[in-house]
């Protein structure tokens, strides 16, 4: 009996110790890998810029939750675009995270899906189908019917997968509405946060 307790305690203690050490060793690299990943995606959804958007954030509240908004500026400090993550909670299998890059005038520069569990070969077209991904560029709330074609909108659905693109289109639209509502405040705060900024490109 005592032996059993001792054996299990020792095994658990050693395992815990090993896990602690691994956590110490890997914490920094994991953080770096996540940053590198975010950096790569940010570069894809933002127009050419001179600053480091990852380190140039303003925080906005949405439904009580703080959302970091990354700001891209050109060489003279003018704001060229904003980027932030929108979440589509109604994907075919779970939430879809989308990084949205929007110019100050409210038109989309680019979107990229950063996290999803959609069906490989069907719903994952939101990542693999390049023309579809690029079809968001230049769209605004006004110039576009924000729905898939099946629902009378401007975006293609995929053969055998309508739910996934529908969820993404809806989330991107809500992202634009969110931007529209907070545009003035965002521009103001972004200008405040950088002393070098002078004016905004329209």
């Amino acid at each position: 009996m005592v032996m059993m307790v001792v054996a299990l305690t020792v095994v658990t203690l050693v395992a815990t110790l090993l896990l602690g050490v691994t956590d110490l060793v890997t914490r920094e690299p994991i953080h770096d890998a996540q940053r590198a990943m975010l950096h790569r995606t940010l570069e894809q959804v933002l127009p050419p810029h001179a600053n480091s958007p990852m380190d140039d954030q303003v925080t906005v509240k949405r439904d009580g939750k703080p959302i970091p908004v990354y700001v891209a500026r050109d060489g003279s400090g003018r704001i060229v675009a904003f980027a932030w993550v929108v979440v589509a909670p109604d994907g075919y299998s779970g939430a879809i995270h989308i990084l949205l890059g929007v110019k100050p005038n409210g038109s989309i520069y680019a979107v990229r899906v950063t996290e999803h569990q959609e069906t490989p070969g069907l719903g994952d077209g939101i990542v693999r189908n390049k023309p579809w991904v690029h079809s968001f560029s230049g769209k605004t709330l006004e110039n576009t019917r924000w729905a898939v074609k099946k629902d009378g909108g401007d975006f293609d659905q995929f053969t055998g997968a309508t739910i996934t693109p529908r969820a993404v289109v809806k989330a991107v639209k809500q992202g634009l509405e969110f931007f529209q509502a907070r545009r003035k405040m965002l521009l103001h705060e972004a200008r405040q946060s950088a002393s070098s900024s002078r004016e905004v490109v329209q």
Partner: peptide, 29 residues
């Protein structure tokens, strides 16, 4: 001891899996 070998083995396996998962997260993100 024979009676507690299964929980002991599972703890060992879970520890290794977690370590390898963390290492993959860090270096093969």
């Amino acid at each position: 001891p024979k009676n507690v070998r299964i929980p002991a083995y599972i703890t060992v396996i879970a520890a290794f899996v977690t370590i390898i998962g963390m290492a993959m997260d860090a270096w093969m993100h």
